[in-house]
Design a protein around this nucleic acid. Structure first.
Lengths: 217, 217
DNA sequence: TCTAAATTTTAGCCTTATCTAAATTTATTT
DNA sequence: AAATAAATTTAGATAAGGCTAAAATTTAGA
């Protein structure tokens, strides 16, 4: 499988989790920053290899075979992210581009030994679950900060939107993986939240609160 | 730079160390397992990018810029090999193909942090020197087993021929990185050597002795 | 020196992954 | 239901990397 094919599978997987099971050509082109016609070409190739099922004008979905391949790529991506953050001390907003390259390295043995070396982590630095060797994806106990209860001790365990700009915003606000906080007030009007972090008061918008994952301590 | 360009630079570098400074199209094609005509195409492209100097029918050599790039790829390859052997417990005959992929990952920061994580190693698992951040290549104190003195305590530090079959032969003979041994006798006729390893006697051919690097203890 | 052999380059073609522009199908709106 | 808009596919082009076969150049032998 080529890098490009792997990227398509990964993106189709992510899109079909977010919205419908069937993904449109246009949606893929948007995410990939390419043209719908290019997507059509590739999707037809993937369909021939039985990695996606595809009917003209009707969108694509992953076959079992395609889903397995996609999950494996995501497994590799997230394991490498753990490696980069835990062992090489990168921060969570720096690792994506490098992991994007490392995820294409082909060696099942390498993946499994890396997994072992990292002590079989179940979540990556952004709080996303890491599929195991058999492709099983661990269930998460986390919830969105926007949905969490008032006055509880919460620990920040990840983000939904892992765009570099969002992660940099969080760094600026001194929010990172492992930060503990409480919600002191929810504003009805705009759904913004008042938080206490290390005895410091601050306010975050709903948009932000809806992109941060927390667990109750 | 593409993977392919990087591979060419690496191979031209290795060939010009082994033989002359100027490398022939044919020699490159042999090592790459491709055709001389393909090599010509690529070499012309590399010349345009000022990575090699090239005159029709006269062979190629690396420019300063090309040499820098080649050394950087070799640095990455060898650092990853150390990682695979020391941290993920691969054996030295398994790492080459994986390192061949990892050497193309693009991130200077990644390379330097990996270097640091591994404690700035100066040799890879095959005993080859690892260029530092500035492209400087440490001098080695090693010598070929075939050239080493009799009755001295020697430690095996690497191999010249790192083909999988040779490394597997060594594994079978219980010779590996760190093995200590003495030469008890040199046979004039065929240049074979009698060795003692862990109080066990054994004989190796000149061909083998000429491919193992040792240091005097 | 002149020819034969070996090496190297050119020319033309293939594949992969893209693109633009045009055509087609589906969806929406009046 | 027809007309228009939006989405999707087809057709044809391009660039990278590689191949084969043929032409050109260099090297070596007689």
């Amino acid at each position: 499988m080529t890098h490009s094919e792997e990227n398509y599978l990964k993106i189709i997987y992510h899109l079909s989790l977010k919205s419908e099971a069937v993904v449109s050509t246009n949606a893929i082109a948007n995410v990939m920053d390419s043209k719908p016609s290019s997507v059509t070409d590739m999707v037809q190739k993937l369909a021939e290899k039985d990695l996606v099922s595809y009917k003209k004008y009707q969108g694509v979905s992953l076959t079992e075979k395609g889903k397995k391949a996609a999950v494996n790529i995501i497994r590799k991506h997230r394991l490498w992210e753990v490696f980069l953050v835990e062992k090489l001390h990168f921060s969570w907003d720096e690792v994506h581009d490098i992991a994007e390259q490392l995820e294409h390295i082909k060696s099942e043995q390498l993946t499994n030994r890396l997994d072992e070396f990292l002590n079989f982590p179940t979540e990556d630095p952004h709080g996303d679950p890491i599929p195991n060797k058999n492709g099983e994806i661990p269930k998460l106990t986390r919830q969105l900060l926007a949905d969490a209860p008032l006055q509880q001790n919460l620990i920040c365990v990840g983000v939904k939107d892992s765009s570099s700009s969002f992660l940099q915003y969080l760094n600026k606000q001194n929010i990172s993986l492992g930060t503990t906080l409480q919600i002191t007030e929810k504003e009805e009007f705009d759904k913004s939240l008042k938080l206490v972090i290390d005895d410091e008061q601050m306010t975050v918008s709903h948009m932000v609160a809806n992109n941060i994952f927390v667990k109750q301590l």
